[in-house]
């Protein structure tokens, strides 16, 4: 790996990452800050909205009623939003890992440096890992601080929250891996972002359809969002390895295929 490439990649994304972090931090603190208000009026709210289903209706086995109320709130108000934010981030950063430099013409200069394409792309993937960790860490910090201030009674453990965010991290990397794979195939930024975003939207629709139609539940398994279940990790049960493993394998396989394609493909001006 090349430290110069990693540093350059981080440097060229630092402003965008700052704003991503700022937004996620603000969102996390806002949601946690509103929790006492929701908790106080939970019954009235759910009744007015037609039942607790509206707020996620999460029931984690072994959790107390109060915890389940919080999980429902957390799931409906935070993680479902964050899922889309992180999917957007994954598409933007994964696809942009190559296409952005192709668009500016800097890819030619970068690849003319005395390093192999494998080393170049691995350095870029390392930068992706760093930036994704920074973004997900912003969420972790926000929820941890927010829980300490506004949700002490819920008993959210730092370790459980870490596990939640570990799944978020792997989810983002899986989306980014898909974006990177498309980028190495297409190279042009507009077409790559468009196609990656289109696939993400289709996967989201599949999740909704699977949620609505009980005979089409299997659709959930072909959507990356079907493996997003961070709130379930909060319960006292075991870490759900299977879903995180699927996301992790997706991230690894897509990145590996991208690497193989990128090593051989022509960079046509």
């Amino acid at each position: 790996m090349s430290l110069s490439v990693i540093r350059l990649t981080l440097r060229t994304r630092r402003l965008a990452i700052f704003w991503f972090d700022f937004g996620i931090l603000a969102l996390g603190l806002l949601i946690m800050g509103l929790w006492p208000l929701f908790a106080e009026n939970w019954d009235d709210l759910t009744q007015a909205m037609g039942g607790s289903e509206v707020f996620g209706g999460t029931q984690v086995e072994g959790a107390s009623a109060q915890q389940n109320t919080f999980y429902s709130y957390f799931s409906s108000q935070y993680t479902s939003t964050l899922m889309l934010v992180l999917a957007y981030f994954g598409v933007w950063f994964g696809a942009g890992l190559i296409t952005r430099d192709f668009g500016t013409g800097t890819l030619d200069v970068l690849l003319a440096a005395p390093m192999s394409r494998t080393r170049f792309l691995l350095s870029r993937i390392a930068a992706l890992l760093v930036l994704t960790t920074v973004v997900v860490a912003a969420s972790y910090v926000a929820i941890l601080v927010g829980a300490a201030i506004w949700a002490r009674e819920v008993d959210l453990g730092a370790l459980e929250l870490l596990v939640v965010h570990l799944q978020m991290l792997v989810f983002t990397l899986a989306v980014a891996g898909g974006g990177l794979l498309l980028a190495t195939l297409i190279l042009q930024p507009g077409r790559t972002y468009g196609l990656a975003a289109g696939i993400i939207v289709i996967m989201f629709v599949l999740l909704i359809v699977a949620d609505i139609a009980s005979n089409l539940e299997w659709l959930e398994k072909i959507s990356i969002f079907g493996y997003w279940n961070p709130v379930d990790q909060l319960g006292p049960g075991d870490f759900i390895w299977r879903d995180t493993l699927v996301l992790g394998v997706t991230a690894l396989v897509t990145s590996a295929i991208a690497l193989v394609i990128f090593r051989r493909r022509d960079i046509v001006a």
Partner: peptide, 17 residues
């Protein structure tokens, strides 16, 4: 990579951040 260690490249298209 070894060959490119001896070369510098100025492309025709703009290559700037």
């Amino acid at each position: 990579p070894t060959a490119r260690n001896s070369m510098s490249f100025l492309p025709s298209d703009s290559s700037l951040y």
